[in-house]
Design a protein around this nucleic acid. Structure first.
Lengths: 241, 241
DNA sequence: AAGTGGTCTAGACCACCGC
DNA sequence: CGGTGGTCTAGACCACTTC
């Protein structure tokens, strides 16, 4: 399949089964012994695959008991890709989304550069306003690499967002986040229904899958209605200076 | 020594040698074969230790060449605690810091709550403006838990920042970041030498060590002169959404 | 007692690099 | 060519949980 390494293939295989829903969160997956028999590999190889998936948090292992698919973890904001729809509903509020644009375009220099394509290449462009109880909380301006999600334009984005579709469809490898504080343009201020001098938080994200840029999205939030957060464990010894 | 696992002991040993400066960045460390002979372990065990340290970024390995101590890594923004002084100097610019306050105070409700103390408890309060080539780039307003860093007030913060001191002194376990976009107060705008309508990025951070909150700090950056970024690998594709 | 994961060993083959 | 790291195997012992 992918990379020659056998443990890597085992990891990919297990990830795929979980991603496809064949193994749900909480499900107990076969033991190392069973996987050894099933796959015809040595136990060290299978063990390494499972250990690394557990380190990543995809699996939970307990000696003497078994290996289980982990529950989705509560992480927020800067370290994951949030579903603004789910967040809104989790607060018990009404979620709304106005799709303002959904079309194929030719990549400008900026977009081509961000998606690692050539100027003029065909890209998908999607714009929408997310609302919480009717109040705009995010203006999302997204470009999608057609090679990564060819059916993007054919989706019904009435209830599910652009992000949710991509996350569910493309197995992401890597994420880049950049955060800025800006004043909205006149057009942005109007769409967000805020005064033009309202400070806004801009989260710019790029995602990768298999070395290819999947999407490039700029999310503008009124600073007064949104914030980003994260909490994480410190990995290593402080290199931090 | 520490944890029973041999590969863990090897990791700790190598980390220690690097931390003590015995092996400097760029130094080539002994090969797996040599470490096997020196430590009397199997190659798999030594290999695992080296592989994990390389994954963590402490070592750089190249097949056919050797294993080297990594250079301090350029990571930025949301996933680590930055040294604004080091960043500034790395850009070849002059770094400056004006300490505006450094004193013991009684915790207000907000501060006590953030530090998990009681109102009125004694806390350290430190404020400074960071400058790049003389231009203010960050206003830092920090509270420190005396229990975590009792000698904080006695430090000479002429060249080293508050953050650098804490990071070097207290072994951090956990970090919380929250990002907002705000308009600065009149006083903040003056200290940052920006117009009062300049959108600003606020990074609020709390850190923990051994279950105790070490510090609570609010860093205000003019949005026009600063941004935060991070790039990270995705753990489990499935959960997002 | 049987099954689980955690670790460790002593070999092995390979691709790659530098000489 | 010899040295390096990357991987893999087929065993092994252990601590632990569950029955």
């Amino acid at each position: 399949m992918a990379s020659g390494a056998l443990y890597q293939q085992v990891k990919d295989d297990i990830r795929r089964r979980i991603h496809e829903g064949q193994w749900q969160p909480g499900h107990r997956i076969p033991s190392e012994h069973e996987l050894v028999a099933e796959l015809g590999l040595s136990r060290m190889t299978v063990h390494r695959a499972l250990r690394e998936l557990a380190e990543q948090g995809l699996l939970v292992r307990q000696a003497g008991v078994g290996t289980f698919v982990a529950e989705p973890r509560p992480q927020s904001g800067l370290l994951r890709i949030n579903s603004i729809a789910a967040e809104t509903r989790a607060r018990g509020h009404e979620y709304g989304c106005d799709v303002l644009r959904l079309a194929r375009e030719s990549a400008t220099l900026e977009v081509a550069s961000a998606l690692d394509l050539d100027t003029g290449d065909s890209v998908f462009h999607a714009v929408c306003v997310h609302r919480e109880n009717g109040v705009p909380v995010q203006l999302e301006d997204r470009y999608v690499n057609p090679a990564a999600a060819p059916d993007f334009l054919d989706q019904d984005f009435g209830r599910t967002g652009f992000s949710e579709y991509l996350v569910a469809t493309v197995p992401l490898d890597e994420v880049e986040h950049v955060v800025d504080a800006v004043q909205p343009t006149a057009g942005e201020a109007e769409l967000l229904a805020v005064r033009p001098d309202t400070p806004c938080l801009v989260l710019t994200r790029r995602t990768w899958a298999g070395g290819v840029v999947v999407t490039f999205v700029r999310c503008i939030h009124p600073g007064t209605r949104y914030r980003l957060g994260s909490r994480f464990r410190v990995n290593g010894p402080q290199w931090f200076g």
